[in-house]
Design a protein around this nucleic acid. Structure first.
Length: 165
DNA sequence: TAGGCCATCTGGTCCT
DNA sequence: AGGACCAGATGGCCTA
C-alpha cells in the first residue's frame, strides 16, 4: 500500500508483500492483475509495435506475473527517485508560490529560466567570453557545466578583489 | 463537470 | 539475460 503525500489519493498497489501473503489474498491479486491485463490487451487499440525478435521466455503465468510485479516495483522506485530529484530542484529555485507546490513542468521551466538568468549575470560580471547558451544541446551536462562553475568562481573572485580594495 | 496533474501499470526497446 | 529507460494508457484527486 502506498500513500501519496498531500493526502491526495491512496492507491492500491499490487506489490510483492501482497503477493507473498496468504493464498486467498494472493489469488485475488493474481486475478486482479490478469483481469487488468486482459482489459488492456483486448482493448480497442491494437498495439502497432513490432514484436521483438527476442526468444519467448518459457515462464509460467505465475512466474511472468512475479517478474511483472518486480518490474513494477523497480519502476515505482525509479519514479520516486525522479520525484525526489524534482523536489530537490524545487527547493533551489526561487519562486513566489511558496505555499503551492510547483508542478513538474513549472519546475523545469523555472529552472531553465533561472539558469539562463544566472548565466547572463555571470556573463555581465565577468565581461569575458562565454559560450552561447542556445544550441548547446548535450554540452550542458558536462563541458559547459564545468565552464559555468569555473566562470562563476572567477567572477566571484574578481568581484571580491574589486570590492575589497 | 471538464481539464490539469499525478501515480501506477505495462510492454517495447536500449544498455551493460 | 536482466535491469533501466521510455511512452502510452488508465484512473484518482483537485480546482476553477
Amino acid at each position: 500500500m502506498k500513500t501519496k503525500t498531500k493526502g491526495k489519493k491512496q492507491r492500491q498497489t499490487v506489490d510483492k508483500e501482497a503477493f507473498s501473503e496468504e493464498p486467498a489474498m494472493r489469488k485475488k491479486e493474481l486475478e486482479k492483475c490478469l483481469r487488468h491485463k486482459e482489459r488492456r490487451s483486448g482493448g480497442s487499440k491494437e498495439s502497432s509495435k513490432v514484436p521483438t525478435g527476442r526468444a519467448k521466455r518459457p515462464w509460467s503465468t505465475k512466474d511472468r506475473l512475479l517478474r511483472r510485479l518486480e518490474s513494477n516495483e523497480r519502476e515505482r522506485q525509479r519514479m520516486h527517485k525522479l520525484n525526489n530529484a524534482f523536489q530537490a530542484l524545487r527547493e533551489v529555485i526561487p519562486h513566489v508560490r511558496a505555499e503551492n507546490k510547483l508542478s513538474k513542468i513549472e519546475t523545469l521551466t523555472l529552472a531553465k529560466n533561472y539558469i539562463k538568468s544566472l548565466t547572463s549575470i555571470i556573463l555581465n560580471m565577468s565581461n569575458g567570453h562565454f559560450p552561447a547558451v542556445e544550441g548547446m544541446g548535450g554540452a550542458w551536462g558536462s563541458k559547459l557545466h564545468k565552464e559555468i562553475i569555473v566562470a562563476s568562481s572567477l567572477s566571484f573572485f574578481f568581484f571580491f578583489l574589486k570590492t575589497n580594495r
